[in-house]
Amino acid sequence: MTAPPLSGLPDDRILKTLRAHRQGPVLTVELNVPEQGNAVTDAMLDDLLAVLDDQDPAVRVLILAGAGQDFCLGGDRGEFAEHLTHDATGGGIRVSGVKARRVCDALTSHPAVTIARVQGKAIGAGLALALACDLRVGADTATFRLPELALGLPTAWGGLLPRLISEAGAASVRELILTGRAFDAQEALGLSILQRVVPEEALDDAVDAWARPVLRRPAPALRVTKTLLNSLTASTRLADASVLDPELMAAVVSELHHTRTIR
């Protein structure tokens, strides 16, 4: 059966990096650049904003998935270099960072319940996208990593750091960021980065098992409850400075680029 087009989006041919399809009240948004590991680019951020800003109240569940072997290999470093070529002060990176923050906030605040379906690798920005969702299920073979520090970058993308500390705890997050080591699905489950781990072939069944009871809940109560949960979670982030993420990323990358250039 062909899924109906999204309201406001004539068809998913206008989405360059995503595949979006809807079945009744369930909207699936798939990162769809598998040949590049679904790396996050400005084009992908624009596509995600186009879909997430189109808030049809009939959509009750939004599933975020990744095509191919990996969920998302993080930000596109080649595009970072292009931004610096055009503006060594980091202006392009700053604009991209603002988009990233908007995308992650839109996933968190979306009136639908958002579910991340994670397979393969979820690295850096990919982990941030998954973490912005309400519910997160991963394949038992999934792996995760925060490599920013090893790349000379701050962990400042999409408001990742306060969300990660809120979910996993400051001590664990400190170790993961400073070492940059990979960790598996079972460790992610223990840290509440994932809420469920299943064999990869059971991912769709696990998503369905979450979606079915959500769809039976009265829509007004569900929206209010999600808003309350988000508000209470946000209130525990006593000093959420992630609004400065784009500025921090631009400043550090620009300085690093300048240092390498003059050597």
Rank of each mutant, 00 (worst) to 15 (best):
L6T: 05
A251M: 11
L73Q: 08
R212M: 02
D42Y: 02
A211M: 10
H21Y: 13
R196W: 02
D70T: 12
L18P: 00
R163D: 06
D56L: 07
R13F: 01
A58V: 03
V103I: 06
L215Q: 06
R101L: 15
I93P: 00
P162Y: 09
L146H: 00
A106S: 15
C72S: 15
E247N: 09
D47I: 05
S172M: 04
D105K: 11
L52M: 05
G91Y: 10
L232H: 11
L153Y: 09
A100D: 10
V98Q: 14
R22G: 08
L146R: 05
H21P: 00
D54R: 14
V243C: 06
L15P: 02
Q36K: 10
T28I: 04
A58D: 14
V224Y: 05
E35N: 10
G152I: 07
E255F: 02
D105F: 00
I262Y: 06
G78A: 12
V29R: 08
T2G: 01
F71V: 04
A139M: 02
R22D: 09
N38R: 08
K99W: 04
E30Y: 00
A43D: 15
L153V: 01
P246D: 08
V29G: 04
G24K: 07
D140V: 00
A50C: 07
N32H: 15
T41F: 04
T225S: 14
A106G: 09
S7L: 12
L135P: 01
V173P: 08
V137T: 13
G169C: 07
S96T: 10
A170T: 09
S166N: 12
R60G: 13
S172V: 05
A185S: 14
D54A: 15
T259W: 09
L6F: 01
A39Q: 14
R77M: 08
L256K: 14
I193Q: 03
V95T: 13
D12H: 13
R22F: 11
P57D: 13
R102E: 13
V198F: 13
H110A: 07
F144C: 03
W210I: 05
D134I: 01
D47K: 03
L248G: 00
A3K: 06
